[in-house]
Simulated scan of single mutants.
Amino acid sequence: MKLELVLIPSTGDGHLRPLVEVAKLLLDNDDHLSITVVIIPSMHGFQTTSYCSYIASLSTTSNDRLRFSFISSADRPNSPDAEPNFISYMESYKPVVKATVAKLTDYAQPPSSRLAGFVMDIFCTTMIDVANDFGVPTYLFYPSNATFFGLQIHVQYLCDVEKCDIISELKDSATELEVPCLTRSLPAKCFPSVLLNKEWFPVFLRQARRFRETKEQQLNAFEMVEELGLGVEIRNHFQGVYMAAETDMELMTAEEIERGVRCLMEKDSDVRDRVRKMSEKSHMAVMDGGSSHAALVKFIQEVTRNIS
């Protein structure tokens, strides 16, 4: 039986490009899969020349197994300017995405083909409702690192189960937080500022709650940079300006940056040697038998098992 997956990326190079590459890898590893990538237009002001060029290139690369379905902003009932934030913007496209997928599943689909599930970006979790309407499972695509994923899930647990007020308890605090995904305690002063921002914290909390509704979170993370000692310590200020955070960012001097770069570039640098070894491990991970390749095969098996 042919299985159809629907992939829904959020807008932006850092989300669309990786998911398209994942689609290609999935198709390379299983001839029974076909994939449709549903592309929602960017919010006004978020488009870049690079992103627009990439979108244009995709329109010429569709084939029988990898298709791109471009939604127009004209299909929305309201003007893009009517939505207050990105999450609401994505939610406004639910009816259009549902209609698009309905056409895909009805149009020229042979009896032996079946919709197997949705794979959606972290900022598209509202589309879980659409997948539920079709009675198929949802899989989460998380392009950020596994550490932040673990932190986000743990913060949601602290809020919903332990009833903690994260912002009031951690902001400007000297306490340290025990996080299951970290080998060391996390000082409050190193807590990501986006999770201490009154505007954005509810967004990330809502995301984490919906993550738990997905069928499975396929994590394919290399060992942490800190554990491997690949980082060059210059100075790190997590409490900098990020997404309208209310704190000030302390700028590094040119001398500090130069020192860090020189440490990496020295021929006999221990850090440079570990970077080279990590590069080799990364290459091996995507080869047959590697961890990335094994995770991909496991995901395909999961999709097939859930639909059988």
Results as ranks from 00 to 15, higher is better:
Lys2Asn: 14
Pro9Leu: 00
Ser10Trp: 10
Gly12Val: 02
His15Ala: 04
Leu19Ile: 08
Val20Lys: 07
Glu21Pro: 11
Lys24Tyr: 03
Ser34Gly: 08
Ile40Glu: 03
His44Leu: 15
His44Gln: 13
Gln47Gly: 13
Gln47Arg: 12
Ser50Cys: 08
Tyr54Ala: 02
Ser57Ala: 10
Leu58Met: 02
Leu58Tyr: 05
Ser59Val: 01
Ser59Arg: 15
Pro80Leu: 10
Asn85Glu: 12
Glu91Cys: 11
Ala99Tyr: 12
Thr100Gln: 09
Val101Met: 06
Ser113Gly: 11
Ser113Ile: 01
Gly117Gln: 01
Phe118Thr: 03
Phe118Asp: 00
Met120Thr: 15
Asp121Leu: 08
Phe123His: 03
Thr125Ala: 06
Asp129Gly: 04
Ala131Trp: 01
Asp133Ile: 12
Asp133Val: 09
Phe134Ala: 11
Ala146Trp: 06
Leu151His: 05
His154Pro: 05
Gln156Met: 11
Cys159Tyr: 12
Cys159Pro: 02
Lys163Pro: 02
Ile166Trp: 01
Ala174Ile: 11
Thr175Gln: 09
Glu176Tyr: 06
Cys181Gln: 03
Pro187Val: 00
Pro187Lys: 01
Trp200Asp: 15
Val203Asn: 10
Gln207Val: 09
Arg209Phe: 02
Phe211Pro: 04
Arg212Ala: 15
Glu213Met: 01
Ala221Gln: 10
Leu230His: 04
Ile234Ser: 07
Gln239Tyr: 11
Ala244Ser: 15
Thr247Gln: 13
Ala254Ser: 13
Glu255Ala: 04
Glu256Trp: 00
Arg272Ile: 10
Val275Cys: 08
Lys277His: 11
Met278Gln: 14
Met278Lys: 08
Glu280Ile: 03
Glu280Phe: 08
Ala285Asn: 03
Val286Pro: 02
His293Trp: 09
Leu296Ile: 12
Val297Phe: 13
Val297Met: 15
Lys298Ala: 15
Ile300Tyr: 09
Val303Gln: 08
Arg305Leu: 10
Asn306Trp: 12
